[in-house]
Design a protein around this nucleic acid. Structure first.
Lengths: 160, 160
DNA sequence: GGTGATTGGTTGTTGATACAACTAAGGTAG
DNA sequence: CTACCTTAGTTGTATCAACAACCAATCACC
């Protein structure tokens, strides 16, 4: 059995604080969206990914990859969002196993309505608390972490 | 209606990456603990907070504050952990509304067994991907974010 | 072109969390 | 001491997500 290498004081301090951020920030992000727009952060992100897709259209499995969702989870969320009139499901002509998901006009309006409040929340919770240098550092740190967390870049539409 | 101030390229890039980390890292932390120790990260954190408390004892509501849990959530988790023999609930003598939660010997053993693997996971997912400077930066950035996210320092036992 | 393996997506079931209602104990004012 | 408010914790109910089982369509291969 190998000896555990514990953390230095500096590592310990950074990790404890960062872990607290991981715990608190997602909840704070969700809170504003559910309160102001009756959308979960996942709902919002799903609609946002569709809004950025060419033709506001993605296949279900492609949308699942971008949102980091399992297919069962996305399936039920889409059923609800479809019922609310924000998305529409249509069979894919090219591959009849697949389903195309499109953002409806109402869905587009919803994203447009929700985005400013969400961005303002991101500003007030994150960006406004940091110096420009720290924002750049955070980008570099996050990129470094993503090389192990998301080596394929699944969550980034522009890549691969 | 005020005009929305959108994000600069630098802000946008940093935020998109950081948001992906917020999505992926907690799941990766949970995965190792559930796979290797059959503990959720919340279970582990709960036991860890108890293990660091004087006498391995905390009142339920104090434990809830340190773990950022609602009382109902903690109540049910404690019921399960009690059934597994890791914690014990005893009435508080001083205030008979309150309940003291103590870490049993089995619970202590569990934390001792689980900690090395968890720490190793934190290393491989976070610390090893960063330079010493970046670790220091991450600590400072997290501290800055916590001034708005957790102004009372609820999650830090040492403070107020 | 038929057989078997794979992929795309939905649904059954179970465990987990939130909100709200509830019980019980403690504090406070008359 | 009694009525009322607050605090500590548990439990009822509904929603959400995960895993697994399932159906349907496509592909690989002979």
């Amino acid at each position: 059995m190998t000896e555990t290498r514990w953390l230095s004081d500096d590592q310990q301090r950074a990790w404890v604080r960062f872990a607290a951020v991981l715990e608190l920030l997602p909840a704070a992000l969700d809170l504003q969206l559910t309160r102001d727009e009756h959308l979960t952060h996942f709902d919002y992100f799903t609609l946002a990914m569709l809004s950025e897709a060419p033709g506001r259209l993605l296949r279900t499995s492609a949308l699942a990859a971008r949102t980091n969702a399992t297919l069962p989870r996305l399936s039920r969320v889409l059923t609800r969002l479809e019922g609310e009139g924000f998305v529409a499901r249509t069979p894919c002509e090219a591959d009849r196993r697949a389903t195309n998901v499109t953002l409806t006009d109402a869905g587009w309006e919803k994203v447009v309505a929700a985005a400013p409040g969400h961005v303002e929340n991101v500003r007030s919770l994150v960006l406004d608390a940091l110096t420009p240098e720290q924002i750049t550092q955070l980008g570099a740190i996050s990129a470094a972490l993503l090389t192990t967390l998301d080596p394929q870049g699944k969550m980034f539409a522009s890549e691969a």
